[in-house]
Nucleic acid binder design. Structure first.
Length: 923
RNA sequence: GCCUCCGUAGCUCAGGGGUAGAGCGCUCCCUUGGUAAGGGCGAGGUCAUGAGUUCAAAUCUCAUCGGAGGCUCCA
């Protein structure tokens, strides 16, 4: 063999060749089936990390496989390029967001090229370019014209740290999802998208092959519930208070009402005697952060307003309280409290000594349930009691109208005009205003009291480039007069759009990224849409993935797809349903986590006080190499906070404060050492710069080559789960690719070939094809590679034995390289070329699985006694039942066990697809 | 608290009513002109635990324990 596998010598070469020959250019071709594969577009943070590789290269392998199977594949890439980091960089380093962003994009694009992915770069879309955001603005206008975008006043999430409002989806546990800083609630005038109009349709996932957890998360997020609304009037005055309840069958048990502290009527109905108490409570609540308010198991608090309401169903006078356990953002912000049958109301009633009245008599209880006996609310099934004409109605566990009692009460409420059936959603309209500069402008004007859209001819409203980035916390647009001042009476909107708006439609922009008279080309859309395979992280479950579904449905209803539908019909494709969902199949990759790492084993000496020490000397030694008589603290360095080391000795964490002038000795690092160089224990956790466990893909490519990195990522993890990084395991795929190189270039054996051996290698090849196909189909890249490793071992054996003829050998190698091509595209291309086959391996047909060739001829008949395997007998694969049973009964194992007796039972299990036939003899 | 998913070799993972599998790692041997390498042999598993169904359970059912993710005063 002349030469070993040298990835660097071939990878860049082929990347250039592929680009020159436009190998991955995707063009509409109605004569071929289409396949639109897409991975979530990255934010141009500046550096590609291993997570990008993990998300993109397996998706690339699958797209390549589809292509070889005869599909016309579109696999585009772009950048979600608006967002805060660019603006922060502008403030911190006085570099314009555009320059920062574009420099990052150029760098990352180069890094991505090293993946050897089949991205069609001519379709690249970048959301922060005017040619892109012109159409984001245009879509906003379309939404506005169709009543799907509106300006409204709402209690919004305000992030102090970012000086902007956030969507509900961007707030987690009362904290800003990105910065982790608490958010406060503020009433503000903002722009919204009417996503709630689509709530019901978004709950249907018909025909969508999406992961169950995502569907569940979206369903939970939308939070549909069925019930009724009823109107209560205040006992004095004319104020009506609407409540929403899922349990209208318990209306007669309402013994008080509770309003959210922020409810608009609170101020109006509060009596003068109670005003001070109410205001004090509201101030207290306002001072609490959202986080505190959401703490679990907190005591219920509230205060009486002094006002009373009349329960419409029984004209009872009940007190109106306010309490923070009622959320102004859910339902109507007001509830009827039924302490007997709602746990929260029960706790509140007990805390403030409010009456509790049973209105559902538990089914399995003979004695009437009394409030005094209750230790918790009863929410089970039973018959309505104390409810006038409704008494006796059965309330079962069903929700909404399906529950007989609820059904009857709703009918009655509607007949008497006291209330009506109502469906409620947890989902709110999508708040899309952001008080930031680096986002898509909202193309609206304020003229006097009028709100006007910017005319289409003036789109895009471009972001001014000559703004000052000063850390005032305000968007530079708000004091850039040439931008916001249109004329004396007209001011331009200075808020910008949530970047999720830009990423809600990028799958359309890829179709024709530079088109300037429409957001996308209808002919392209007719062919490519919808996206067939979408891959990305599950963290976007209720944000991007819900938004883009909404966006798509809105576009469909506005008629944006009409032209594309017509083009479909012209080409003989039925557009029915084609635009209902943007992505028909979704898969989430897991996360590559930082690997676990042992901390340094240290010996610390100094002044010791139990588990504490002020150390004058810290030495790193081999694991457990503690000198005899050492009386300091020793063990693994598990953590360090500034100058204090946490050292685990005998299972107990000891705290070692290192004196500023202490001597630190680290044998592996020459010269004078300092405390920062000590290596601390790392748990398996997310990679992050601050933890020092980040893996740099450029470095890996340099050391191992892109194909090895690709294969390592696909092989060493369950793609949909992810897992901890363990670089030792990279040797597996590396050795595999080196072996493939050697085997492929070893040349055909110089022999006539043995028929049985050739049959055997063909069988193994086709068994391998079946597994690789199934692996790629199911995103089980690891199994697809493991199977090829196995096949490689078979090839290696065959090469050693020299019993395969030249012709068969070439065919087998040819197929093996095609199987390899999606995974290690450079290596496969190089081998294909060196063996003299025509460019390119990536345009070859995928090896076709042949069940007949994969079939075993001889199998082992397993003789089992009482279900335990005892003996095997070689038999033909197509053995008949009678013969198998006869052979089994005659076997030594059976004879021994039966000892002359007749078997109690004989069970024959035929072999099917690869498994051996079995006979179980029960004695 | 509720909902999903998952517990198989030291590690990462396949499989899945009918003989327990792969890669890496590990042991030992060989090679020392592919050398931060190559070749060969081998060891390693009560398939989390307990019960049930079955001729037969790692596989199906139920319970328990453990892990991951999501939701959570949602009226």
């Amino acid at each position: 063999m002349s030469k070993t596998y040298q990835p660097h010598e071939i990878e860049v070469k082929w990347q250039r060749k592929w680009e020159e020959s436009q190998l991955y250019r995707a063009r509409v071709d109605w004569s071929k089936p289409k396949h639109y594969a897409m991975t979530m577009l990255p934010y141009p943070s500046g550096e590609l990390h291993i997570g990008h590789w993990f998300a993109m290269t397996p998706s690339d392998a699958r797209a390549r496989w589809m292509r070889m199977r005869g599909y016309n594949v579109l696999f585009p890439m772009g950048f979600d390029a608006f967002g805060l980091p660019a603006e922060n960089a502008a403030i911190a380093r006085n570099i314009h967001p555009w320059k920062w962003t574009y420099a990052n994009i150029e760098h990352m694009r180069e890094q991505m090229r090293s993946m050897g992915a089949m991205f069609d770069w001519q379709r690249e879309a970048i959301s922060c370019t005017p040619e892109y955001y012109k159409w984001s603005e245009w879509f906003f206008k379309k939404f506005y014209e169709h009543g799907l975008a509106y300006r409204g006043s709402a209690l919004v999430n305000w992030s102090e740290s970012m000086q902007t409002v956030l969507a509900n989806e961007q707030v987690i546990d009362g904290k800003d999802e990105r910065t982790g800083q608490p958010v406060v609630h503020k009433m503000m005038e903002q722009w919204f998208f009417a996503i709630t109009k689509y709530a019901d349709e978004l709950l249907s996932f018909a025909g969508m092959d999406w992961p169950n957890p995502i569907k569940i998360m979206q369903t939970n997020w939308i939070g549909r519930s069925e019930g009724a609304r009823a109107t209560f009037y205040t006992a004095v005055g004319e104020h009506s208070i609407e409540i929403y309840t899922t349990r209208p069958d318990t209306l007669w048990g309402a013994t008080f009402m509770v309003l959210a502290p922020e409810h608009e009527l609170v101020d109006i109905i509060t009596t003068s005697e109670q005003r001070a108490a109410v205001e004090h409570y509201i101030d207290e609540i306002a001072a609490e952060t959202e986080v505190e308010r959401m703490m679990e198991h907190r005591e219920k608090t509230g205060v009486f307003t002094g006002a009373y309401a009349i329960n419409p169903v029984n004209d009872e006078r009940i007190p109106i309280w306010i309490a923070d356990y009622v959320m102004v953002t859910y339902g109507t912000g007001a509830i009827m409290a039924v302490p007997a049958h709602d746990q929260r109301d029960f706790e509140f009633a007990r805390a403030y000594d409010l009456p509790i009245r049973v209105v559902i008599q538990p089914e399995d209880m003979d004695e009437p349930l009394t409030s005094a006996a209750m230790r918790e609310a009863y929410s089970g099934t039973g018959a309505m009691v104390n409810s006038d004409a409704m008494d006796g109605s059965l309330s079962d566990s069903a929700k909404g109208r399906a529950n007989p009692a609820i059904n009857r009460v709703i009918d009655w409420l509607e007949a008497t005009g006291k209330g009506q059936e109502s469906v409620n959603y947890r989902l709110h309209d999508w708040l899309i205003s952001r008080q930031r500069y680096w986002g898509c402008p909202i193309p609206m004007l304020y003229s006097g009291d009028d709100i006007l859209p910017v005319p289409d001819a003036e789109l895009p409203v471009e972001l001014p480039s000559d703004v000052d980035f000063v850390p005032t916390g305000r968007s530079p647009l708000t004091y850039h007069e040439p931008f916001f001042k249109v004329d004396e009476n007209t001011r331009r909107e200075t808020d910008t759009l949530d970047t999720f708006m830009c990423s809600s439609w990028y799958q359309l922009r890829y179709l024709s990224p530079h088109k300037d008279d429409a957001p996308f080309d209808a002919e392209e859309a007719a062919y490519w849409l919808p996206v067939d395979v979408y891959t990305g992280g599950a963290e976007h479950a209720v944000m991007h993935l819900l938004y883009t579904r909404f966006f798509n449905k809105a576009l469909r209803d506005i008629g944006i797809y009409d032209e594309a539908a017509a083009a479909m019909r012209r080409n003989g494709r039925d557009p029915a349903g084609a635009f209902d969902e943007p992505m028909t199949l979704l898969r989430n990759q897991g996360q590559v986590l930082g690997g676990e790492r042992q901390g340094d084993f240290v010996l610390c000496s100094g002044r010791r006080d139990g588990e504490h020490m002020l150390a004058q000397r810290v030495e790193v030694v081999d694991w457990n190499a503690v000198p005899d008589g050492f009386d300091g603290i020793f063990g693994e360095l598990v953590n360090r906070v500034e100058a204090t080391l946490q050292v685990e000795m005998a299972g107990i964490i000891h705290f070692v404060e290192v004196a500023p002038d202490a001597e630190i000795i680290i044998p592996d690092i020459p010269g004078a050492n300092n405390i920062n160089q000590l290596r601390q224990h790392l748990e398996i956790q997310r990679m992050s710069k601050s933890k020092g466990n980040v893996v740099n893909p450029d470095e890996l490519v340099r050391r191992f080559g892109a194909d090895v990195v690709r294969c390592y990522l696909m092989f060493n993890f369950d793609w949909q789960k992810g897992g901890p990084w363990n670089e030792n395991n990279i040797k597996g795929p590396q050795g595999w690719l080196h072996d493939i190189w050697d085997i492929a270039l070893a040349g055909a054996p110089d022999c006539a070939g043995d028929a049985a051996a050739e049959r055997d290698i063909a069988r193994k090849l086709h068994q391998c094809i079946a597994v690789v196909d199934r692996g790629l189909e199911n995103f089980s890249f690891n199994t697809a590679i493991a199977e090829q490793m196995k096949f490689k071992n078979a090839l290696k054996d065959a090469l050693r034995q020299q019993h395969i003829g030249a012709e068969t050998w070439r065919e087998v190698i040819n197929a093996a390289i095609r199987l390899l091509a999606p995974f290690a595209p450079h290596l496969a291309e190089e081998l294909w070329s060196q063996l003299g086959w025509e460019y390119s391996v990536h345009t070859q047909a995928w090896p076709q699985y042949d069940a007949e060739l994969a079939r075993e001829d001889v199998v082992d008949l397993v003789v089992m006694i009482n279900g335990k395997p005892r003996q095997t007998i070689h038999v033909a694969v197509d053995i008949e039942r009678a013969q198998a049973e006869q052979l089994a009964l005659a076997s030594a194992a059976a004879q021994r066990s039966l000892a002359g007796n007749a078997p109690r039972r004989v069970v024959y299990i035929p072999g099917r697809n690869g498994t051996d036939p079995k006979v179980n003899i029960v004695v």
